[in-house]
Design a protein around this nucleic acid. Structure first.
Lengths: 184, 184
DNA sequence: GTGGCATCTTGTCAATGGCAAGATAAGATC
DNA sequence: GATCTTATCTTGCCATTGACAAGATGCCAC
């Protein structure tokens, strides 16, 4: 990262991803414009294409980064309830990443980095469920799906602003209360 | 609906909404193009603007229609489990509506028709939860949120293609199994 | 130092959303 | 029935965008 811009930016790839997060936080992934990102980074309108090919390429990188960070967050949780809360927490704190991750029509689902990162997230989820599982595999699968569904649903509804006001302003607390209804 | 097009289409508003559902089913709400809808309906590129103002106006109408149909589906359910399965079923069968409904950045959240329709959906959900509630209001709220979250989460993950293959191809059955984990 | 290669810029094109102005039809009023 | 009004649809236009092609710049290995 050079402080004084020459012809070469120095760290454009990372800068563009950060700008994308900002832009998506402001107006959602739909309104994302590569040219806007270029302006934010102070480069020409065609510079992003070199690093990401096209819009889908950039969002693929963003989604992969998101699945990686989600995996880290889930791995740091002690039990399933903590993992569920961490999942919601991740969605709220990394809204831009989260919104892209679960909109596969926006990126390349066959990207190798992405598949690997998504695999890490999935493994972290399953290992969280395993902490309270019985020996029955079918039950474990159902438990994992139910846990994932309720955490994902709560996070999604929260982000969509669909939840009633009485739920409060702290997603952390509200999520714990709701998730306990399944896990407790 | 006139079979032979004159200068006036006759039922353009409804035709455009139907075309929008088709287009969204094919490529998602992000790729929706008003000009493409106009071509599908056989009218000029500016015709949609008269009926909906702009893209957000069209998606507002679509979201309101969706909330109305969702309310009907939920009202037809006998108990909470059936309502949950109906919720997932609605999402899968009316994918285009569902995807727009929970993406408020795409439409006008202050639209009167939309707010009314969303209210009907919410009331239907709450009355479904009431069938198995205790006297405690706080518990009822938590139950409603948990039920909504797990159904919404499962539906969303299903639509995103995020669920592992072993879940199967029938969302109806898979949803019942998972939802029973909370409701049973 | 020099050739190769990654990085970035400039220029261009088709497609889109949205606006303005005009054309056409249908209905209301007399 | 004639005329006025309004709703509906068309044509024309402009700024913005994504994508591509060709060229400019500078880093790095040899």
């Amino acid at each position: 990262m050079t402080s004084v811009r020459g012809y070469h930016h120095g760290d454009l790839r990372r800068t563009l991803l950060a700008a994308a997060v900002e832009a998506i936080d402001e107006a959602g992934p739909t309104a994302l414009s590569l040219r806007d990102l270029a302006r934010r980074a102070g480069v020409s309108h065609a510079a992003p294409a070199h690093h990401f090919g096209d819009k889908a390429g950039l969002l693929t990188a963003l989604a992969a980064e998101g699945f990686d960070r989600l995996a880290e967050a889930l791995e740091a949780a002690d039990d399933l309830l903590a993992a569920g809360v961490a999942y919601v927490d991740f969605a709220v704190r990394h809204r831009a990443h989260f919104e892209v991750m679960f909109r596969p029509e926006l990126y390349r689902v066959d990207d190798a980095d992405l598949i690997a990162a998504r695999g890490r997230s999935g493994a972290a989820l399953r290992s969280g469920v395993a902490t309270l599982s019985t020996d029955d595999d079918a039950d474990t699968d159902t438990d994992a799906l139910a846990a994932w569904s309720i955490a994902h649903g709560f996070a999604t509804l929260w982000l969509a602003g669909a939840l009633p006001d009485r739920v409060g302003a702290d997603p952390h607390d509200a999520a714990r209360t709701v998730l306990r209804r399944l896990f407790g």
